[in-house]
Amino acid sequence: MPRSAHSALGNKKKSVSSSSSSSNDSMNGPAKRHKNNRNHWADGLLKFLDDPTDPAVVYLDDEFIAVKDKFPKAKCHYLVMPRDTKFRSLNDLEGRGDMVLLRKMEAVANKLVHDQNETGDPTLQFRYGFHAVPSLNHLHMHVISQDFDSPHLKNKKHWNSFTTTFFVPVEEMQIAVTKGKIDFTYRENRLKDGLKCHRCGKMQTNMPQLKQHISCCNYDATKEFDEYSD
């Protein structure tokens, strides 16, 4: 289910400034070890570990960094990452011990939703999660609003990577980590699914038709539940 905007955490600017004195020390640690082989497009996220002063960075503390997605698929689209470079991919989540890491990433996401909602629309809903087969190296969690209003949302792969089970919600990932079963590669075929509205489930023929549909689709699943309850 989509996540509504909420946070009990503080102000983003305060978080960045309070961690600035320690960021240099942190960058002398694990992130500095991976300054080789960063020219490949799949290593695009690693530059933020080397240089957390990049303008795309919207959150920074001793353990985590968050950036605006370079090609956002919605009005609000961020990536939350641990600064420890040992977390190269989902395969580096070692089980129950990394549950705390995922919970902290979720807390950072809550803060972003609270502090970085650039639209000023408090009704925007968000989902937090991981791609079953990420295209970029280094562990990262997507924080994405459910309007999907973006010129960068261009094809079926883009759409299905956020609206099918290819998108693994953080809650499901936490369960998988607890059980030690973190392999979601079998879901890659979900990228070939048809174009279906994420609200009402109605199939659409192509991306222009889908975008037109979701711009005016007011389907409310909670209303259907209320009617069923009556």
Rank of each mutant, 00 (worst) to 15 (best):
F126D: 03
F162R: 12
V108E: 04
K68W: 09
R3V: 11
S7C: 04
K223P: 01
C76I: 00
K157Y: 14
V58D: 00
F126Y: 12
S135T: 14
P208H: 05
D226G: 03
L124S: 02
H140F: 04
A74D: 02
S145W: 09
H40P: 00
N24Q: 07
H6R: 15
P82S: 12
H34R: 05
D61Y: 02
K179F: 03
H114T: 13
T164W: 04
K12P: 00
C200T: 05
D51Q: 02
D92Q: 08
M203E: 10
G10V: 06
L93T: 03
M141C: 15
N39I: 10
N36Y: 10
D62Y: 03
K68A: 06
V168W: 05
E118W: 12
N218V: 01
A31L: 01
S145H: 13
D220Y: 12
L93Q: 07
G29N: 11
S7A: 07
G44T: 04
D50K: 04
L112M: 11
L60C: 03
H6T: 14
L195F: 02
G129L: 07
D84E: 01
L136D: 09
K75P: 05
Q212S: 09
F130H: 08
A8H: 15
T123I: 05
M81K: 10
C216I: 12
H131Q: 13
M141V: 11
E171N: 15
L101W: 03
L46A: 08
D220I: 13
V113E: 09
L139Y: 01
S20I: 12
C197Q: 02
G44H: 02
P134C: 14
R88S: 08
Q212P: 00
K32L: 03
G29C: 12
G129V: 08
K104L: 15
K202A: 10
F64K: 00
Q212F: 14
L102M: 05
T178L: 01
G29S: 14
F48C: 02
P169C: 08
Q204I: 00
S4W: 13
V108I: 13
S21Q: 10
S20L: 14
K47P: 03
N37A: 07
H138Q: 09
Q209D: 14
H213C: 09
M99C: 10
T205K: 13
D25K: 06
R38C: 09
L9A: 09
N39M: 10
D121I: 01
H40A: 13
E106H: 15
N117G: 07
A8W: 09
A5N: 13
T123E: 14
E172S: 07
N137W: 06
D183H: 02
F130N: 14
T163C: 04
L112D: 10
A8S: 13
T165E: 13
A132R: 08
I182S: 03
E118G: 13
D84S: 05
A66R: 08
H140L: 05
D43S: 11
D25G: 00
H40L: 11
T165K: 12
Q212N: 13
I175F: 07
A109Q: 04
D193K: 14
S23Q: 01
N137A: 09
M99K: 15
S7I: 01
Q116S: 07
K104M: 14
